[in-house]
Design a protein around this nucleic acid. Structure first.
Lengths: 339, 339
DNA sequence: TGACGAACTGAAAACGTTTACGACGACGCC
DNA sequence: GGCGTCGTCGTAAACGTTTTCAGTTCGTCA
């Protein structure tokens, strides 16, 4: 029996000494994995209380070889849509007794890799993440090689071996565009962030194109805006506000849509009279602007939740699954109602 | 020398065997804490490459007794202002080679405690957190008792023994209110969330009251709105839109300000002509609304950064510090310029 | 030449936990 | 009465790392 400095944290040994049993018995009493005499259990509980013992997860993890911690990687927490999916993951993880280790990539491939490397060194049980391009990602290839389970959020991969929880981006892009067409707009364009950094943008663009095709419209203009730069360059501005400007805009992100609305307002154009707008994501502030933002509302919180739960299943050995959740075209003042 | 399954992750032992040295040498070569022959270092590097070795943090942490991981607790990730401070913490942590474990309290005291308990069981090196009331918090009392270092964000405690990184909420509330008065408004009110859940709201309210007093105005109306409930009840609505309605509103949060603006708009009132509004936080979307939102802009990202850096110092033994960062009254269309 | 320090390396202990294995008593059954 | 079974518990090993301690081999200086 060892003595210990009062300042240091009590370990399972101290509890065992206090309760007059072995450390194995303490461990069993705490985890309930084996039969324990109820009297012994009481003594252990009392000792735990007396010492203020809190099991050290590090020891447990080292022994178990895994950590009941999920690594989460998002492009940025500044976008409310990602923050909300993290909140969903967080909630589900808490309920399951898991912890959440977080990292962000800032939309950069190198940081993506570094972050994953960092998370893996923690021996996380699995990962929930959003990457630039789910079908060709060196990061994901690496995870596959290592046999590390993961589930994608927002990404909608073609490959059936990559788990994901998302909405149908192509169909949603189509629906958004159909709504613009139903509102009588024929000169349409899509506004995206950095196209290369987002496979979802591409999928939404595909849906956009399909809706145009089925309506016999040919213009498939794409206007790229860039996530970070708060300034919009002259040519882009003219494209949006010049004489040949579109009368309907599908924006691949709500934040983008709000920026565009502000830009149009500065230029003296009215939404939706001069330009109708549909966004994508369904962030809460979209309801509060004037006019309010019509958008494709994703169930971000639920997506995070489902992603985590599916990750748990994958860790238990379940097959990969591509979970498609329902989305909704949320009406708003930026889009006149269809005829 | 042991053999191992090819599927399992390589350990430092495998590297040692591959390089033909001892595990101690591998450890030293990897951490650079002791002199190593350059030739030996090369062999180790080669073995690391060959095996794809990644040091297991769990083992390191167990041995070290601490974890180079910071626990972060925020009320909610849904509010962009908290998400941004987390991003700041995240950035600083990454640069320092630390990891971020995240939890949220949903503004509930019990969840606050549970979350802290959870983070502590990970043996985090310290905590960065935002609590309901920094001066009387059972959670913080517990941390003090355990000698666990922490730094508060957004909270601005009176007690000198509690570290924090924040702005001067009282002064900011005063400045916001002075701006409303300078704009010629005399019937003023403050709108807050759940007052009890936010010491900062109280501090801002105090600044509000001080500004009214110095201008010889007596009305110190407080309108409580509630964070979660999207609906505003009838009495509150009448207070905001009735005949005796205020002509200037100071909102303790930008999200609240945006909700109020939407509510006034529904009621047919014009901002800023009928009611001038100043918010608090400086969330980016505030620039994009029509009219744009005048607000007290907090350096949220920087606050998170500084909080983490100060936490590192505290862990090294530095004394507690209450860091006050500069804020800015950001002009916006919701507030007519002062005379 | 001998002593001494510097550079480098290895053996082994330690961090806190879980768990395989074995031991012990009590009990039921033939 | 012997034997297996069940419930309960303790001993000790193991997880992967860092670090102390103790060498060994050099070069250098008196």
């Amino acid at each position: 029996m060892r003595t210990r400095a009062a300042s240091s944290k009590p370990t399972i040994r101290d509890v065992a000494a206090e309760a007059g049993v072995s450390i194995a018995t303490v461990s069993r009493a705490l985890n309930g994995r084996a039969p324990i005499a109820s009297e012994t259990a009481k003594k252990v509980q009392a000792a735990v209380q007396a010492l203020g013992f809190r099991a050290n997860r590090t020891g447990r993890e080292l022994r178990a070889g895994t950590s009941r911690t999920v690594g989460v990687l998002v492009p940025s927490l500044a976008n409310p849509v990602f923050a909300e999916s993290v909140a969903g993951i967080q909630d589900a993880a808490r309920e399951a007794g898991w912890s959440v280790l977080i990292a962000s990539s800032a939309y950069e491939a190198e940081r993506e890799n570094q972050a994953i490397e960092h998370l893996l060194s923690h021996r996380v049980g699995g990962l929930v993440l959003t990457v630039a391009d789910a079908d060709r990602s060196a990061t994901l290839d690496g995870l596959d090689r290592e046999g590390m389970p993961y589930v994608l959020v927002y990404n909608q991969p073609d490959r059936a071996d990559r788990s994901s929880a998302t909405i149908d981006n192509i169909a949603a892009g189509r629906d958004a565009t159909r709504a613009l067409i139903a509102a009588g707009r024929t000169r349409l364009a899509m506004v995206a962030g950095r196209f290369a950094a987002s496979d979802r943008s591409k999928q939404r663009y595909r849906g956009f194109g399909e809706a145009l095709a089925e309506a016999g419209l040919s213009q498939v203009a794409l206007i790229e805006l860039g996530f970070d730069a708060p300034e919009v360059d002259g040519p882009t501005r003219r494209l949006l506000t010049g004489p040949d400007r579109p009368t309907g805009l599908f924006c691949s992100t709500d934040l983008l849509a709000l920026r565009v609305m502000a830009l149009l307002r500065e230029a003296g154009l009215r939404v939706p009279d001069d330009v109708a707008i549909v966004g994508f994501d369904g962030i809460p502030v979209g309801r509060l602007t004037a006019p309010s933002l019509a958008t494709i509302a994703q169930p971000s919180h639920e997506m995070g939740r489902r992603a985590f739960l599916h990750l748990l299943a994958r860790i238990e050995g379940a097959a990969p699954e591509r979970i498609l959740l329902p989305y909704e075209l949320r009406p708003g003042g930026s889009l006149p109602p269809g005829r």
